[in-house]
């Protein structure tokens, strides 16, 4: 019966987001590590006989000659360039990788900072020459700290939402303040929403823009943008202050709940448990199992970062 039905145009309501990178994700040929060009074995042999194997095998020279020549290797794994920012939220919301739970991640990071001898204080305001954000952990005596950048921590150019891009293509021009508000309006607090409504009702365009900018400034006061993150990083040698921006959206710290075989097996076993409470515990354990590689990566990255800070005299 089904087979006899005529073909039809039928919009797809839901489509699992593929896991391979999109065009606007960080360049997979370079991130998280450079991927050598896959020359065939015979080519490599032929090149070896001509003494040019090394340059061929590196492969990255072909990916982007200028960049490879200009960029030195990053000093540690937590540079802003490797953070996965700016982040583009998925428009579909399914198939997106799982992110480390912020509470768990901050506990891990705090432990590592303390083990390295730093007295971490939470939620410390950092204000430096036009920069303003709140660091999740900071040792004011040694001037070492971190931001675990989740949704509640980023602003401005630290993320690049698809809805703002769509809007930017439209023919109706927006002021800078309007564009900024459009980007973050979904995340405004109740009071900020009220202020926004009031601002949008103003007839004087100059006044309206001023009010919108005020809301933006208040929204961004505790949050960090890419510009600020890069400025902190650039000023670190001179100021002898090191604040790592650890992004929740960094692919190294992401994972798939249905990831590897072991996790899938654990999840499948957990789902079979009839008792709801016990099932919930087992599912949680399976999720932690799935996240274990991401947590290991986080630990390794923070340790390497702290080693580097120590070598800088921090």
């Amino acid at each position: 019966m089904f087979e006899k039905r005529p073909l039809e145009v039928k919009p797809v309501a839901r489509y699992d987001v593929p896991r391979y990178p999109r065009h606007d994700d960080p360049d997979p040929t370079r991130h998280p590590e450079p991927v050598p060009f896959p020359f065939g074995a015979k080519i490599v042999q032929a090149a070896a006989s001509l003494g040019i194997t090394a340059s061929l095998l590196s492969g990255t020279a072909f990916a982007d000659d200028a960049a490879t020549d200009a960029e030195p290797a990053p000093p540690h794994p937590l540079t802003v360039a490797q953070s996965g920012l700016p982040y583009t939220p998925s428009p579909y919301g399914t198939g997106v990788p799982s992110r480390l739970d912020e509470k768990i991640a901050r506990e891990v990071i705090d432990d590592l900072f303390r083990a390295a001898g730093y007295a971490v204080k939470h939620d410390q305001r950092i204000e430096r020459e036009g920069i303003s954000f709140v660091a999740d952990g900071y040792d004011p005596d040694n001037k070492v700290g971190y931001v675990f950048a989740s949704w509640t921590d980023i602003e401005g150019d630290a993320f690049d939402p698809w809805w703002a891009r769509d809007r930017a293509d439209s023919t109706a021009p927006m002021t800078e303040a309007e564009a900024g508000i459009h980007k973050i309006s979904r995340w405004l607090s109740e009071d900020q929403q009220k202020a926004l409504t009031a601002a949008q009702a103003l007839e004087d365009p100059k006044l309206r823009d001023e009010q919108l900018q005020k809301i933006l400034d208040e929204f961004g006061r505790d949050r960090i943008s890419m510009t600020e993150a890069k400025a902190i990083e650039a000023a670190a040698p001179k100021r002898k202050e090191h604040i790592a921006i650890i992004s929740q959206f960094d692919r190294r710290f992401s994972y798939q709940s249905w990831g590897d075989e072991e996790t899938q097996k654990a999840m499948a076993e957990a789902q079979k448990i009839p008792d709801p409470a016990k099932r919930a515990v087992a599912v949680k354990a399976a999720e932690k199992l799935a996240a274990r590689t991401a947590l290991e990566n986080l630990e390794t990255s923070v340790r390497e970062y702290l080693d580097w800070v120590r070598r800088q005299g921090g």
Binding site: R19, D27, P28, F62
Partner: peptide
């Protein structure tokens, strides 16, 4: 509707395998 999930599933498998041919074919303009 038939082809796209099949193509994406093949790509997912190659991406998960960290296959350099897949990476360069689709992300290296050269």
């Amino acid at each position: 509707r038939i082809l796209m999930p099949i193509a994406d599933e093949a790509a997912n498998r190659l991406w998960k395998s960290d296959d350099p041919t897949f990476v360069h074919k689709h992300y290296n303009p050269a």
